[in-house]
Design a protein around this nucleic acid. Structure first.
Length: 410
RNA sequence: GGAGGAGUGGCAGAGCGGUCAAAUGCAUCUGACUGUAACUCAGACGACUUCGGUCUACGUUGGUUCAAAUCCAGCCUCCUCCA
């Protein structure tokens, strides 16, 4: 592919499928060639960890740093107190400062550090919290200085708001302010750090462009927006769940094995896309892997899982996860690297066991699982839902073909 | 302020006195087929259960009835029309 842009960064973004929409890409291209720039992406602080849904943004920042610029991770400590109304039907629960700060630390140490180099250098990453400026805003001053640039007419035309209104679900003034705050973040980051670019998923376009407009109107400065297409599965849904739930980046929240499995299990059609997005492999290699046919594409999936796990969890963890998967699926053994769960009793009913191992959420579900033939102990199907299991040493318990855990008595 | 209408399971959407734990679709889970894929097909899909049942659920609080998601009244929220 011939270089469409002058800057390395935009060429990488283009080549790897990160570009969905941008405001004045030529202007941005120019700026990126002139000198070191900073760009930011906003992240939510409502959980202890980010998840694969945030990975696209993190990779954009990583490439931004790789191509010689300064990435900024903006934590929405302040906006978390409000809650993003986008496309949600329900208002979120508000969070306390304490919870938010705890989350911020966990996210920085367990999610960002693996991908970005932080420090004081010119192209070192920086983490900021919008609570630092948002919490100090004076309501009247803010309304007067910035509120005048937002018209309700336009704000209710955004899809994020429209959805809520159309669904007749209440949208509070508090939440309605989210987009205003987010726009203001951009202006503030430009003021403090000279940041010229905000990136995000395509669902954030409206919010981002708000900041661009606000900066233009309120401070007569030109800044830029760049969004990446959302990664959707064949059913047109957002990606990001394992067989067991959300795919957390933090090792504290999800084992490397499960993380690896998530990538191993993607559907064929997405392999190429995901390789480009979530690994650092060169594009000619990716194109080769992507063109594999039939069963061979499983090799591409393994490489995807290896590379993605390496980035997030390190080489050792990736190797172990791959080995555990190989033993479990290719040899049908009970591999030692599977996630281990401790249960309270040495002897318990199969139903209690399944529930305690978190393989099912209720005994009724456990019963159904057994009736459907999906429950296995050491690879032997359980047929009697009233059976009692003696847990001597470690046993492998499976729910369905893909969920396996090792269980031992505490 | 006045007149109508609506609020049902994760979502969408039936039901409008008993046979309703509530049709159907989507989502989800399991099984079969495969390649730890997609598609397709089959089954399941509130909780607990000694598998006989028991309990909790149809905005909310009361009421009528042997019996209410279904009828009545108050309250809450939303929609439409009029002022």
């Amino acid at each position: 592919m011939s270089a469409q842009y002058k800057s390395d960064f935009l060429n990488v973004m283009q080549e790897r499928g990160f570009i969905h929409q941008g405001s004045d890409l030529e202007g941005l291209d120019q700026k990126l060639c002139e000198n070191v720039q900073s760009a930011y992406i906003g992240f939510d602080a409502t959980a202890k960890s980010l998840h694969v849904g945030n990975l696209t943004g993190i990779m954009m920042l990583k490439w931004f740093q790789e191509t010689g610029h300064k990435p900024i991770t903006l934590m929405g400590g302040g906006t978390s107190k409000i809650g993003d109304p986008s496309f949600k039907d329900q208002s979120r629960n508000l969070m306390t400062d304490e919870m938010i700060n705890d989350n911020l630390e966990n996210i920085r140490d367990n999610c960002f550090r693996q991908f970005l180099r932080y420090g004081e250098g010119e192209t070192d990453a920086m983490m900021v919290n919008n609570d630092d400026w948002l919490s100090e805003l004076k309501y009247l001053d803010f309304l007067r200085d910035y509120g005048r640039y937002f018209t309700i007419n336009r704000m209710i035309s955004f899809d994020s708001v429209k959805t809520r209104l159309e669904r007749e679900s209440p949208l509070t003034l508090l939440e309605f302010n989210y987009m205003v705050m987010q726009g203001y973040d951009f202006v503030e980051l430009h003021r403090r750090h000279g940041t010229i670019l905000q990136m995000g998923g395509s669902d954030q376009w409206g919010n981002i462009i708000n900041g661009v407009d606000l900066a233009h109107k309120a401070a007569q400065i030109q800044i830029f927006a760049l969004t990446a297409p959302l990664l959707l599965n064949s059913a047109g849904e957002k990606m990001g769940k394992t067989v067991n739930g959300a795919v957390w980046l933090s090792p504290k929240m999800l084992s490397a094995y499960d993380y690896w499995q998530y990538f191993r299990n993607v559907e064929d059609a997405l392999v190429g896309n995901m390789l480009a997005r979530f690994t650092m492999l060169p594009m000619n290699e990716i194109r080769r892997l992507e063109s594999l046919q039939g069963q061979e594409i499983n090799e591409a999936k393994k490489i995807l899982a290896d590379e993605a796990t390496k980035l997030c969890r390190g080489e050792d963890a990736a190797r172990e996860a791959a080995e555990t998967a190989r033993q479990t699926f290719e040899q049908g053994m009970s591999a030692e690297g599977l996630p281990t769960v401790e249960v309270s009793q040495k002897e318990m009913s199969i139903l209690d066991l399944l529930v305690e191992a978190n393989l099912v959420s209720s005994k009724g579900e456990g019963r159904r699982l057994i009736q459907g033939g999906g429950a296995k102990i050491d690879d032997v199907a359980v047929t009697d839902e009233n059976m009692t299991c003696a847990i001597a040493g470690t046993i492998k318990v499976s729910a369905g073909k893909k969920k396996h855990v090792l269980v031992k008595a505490a």
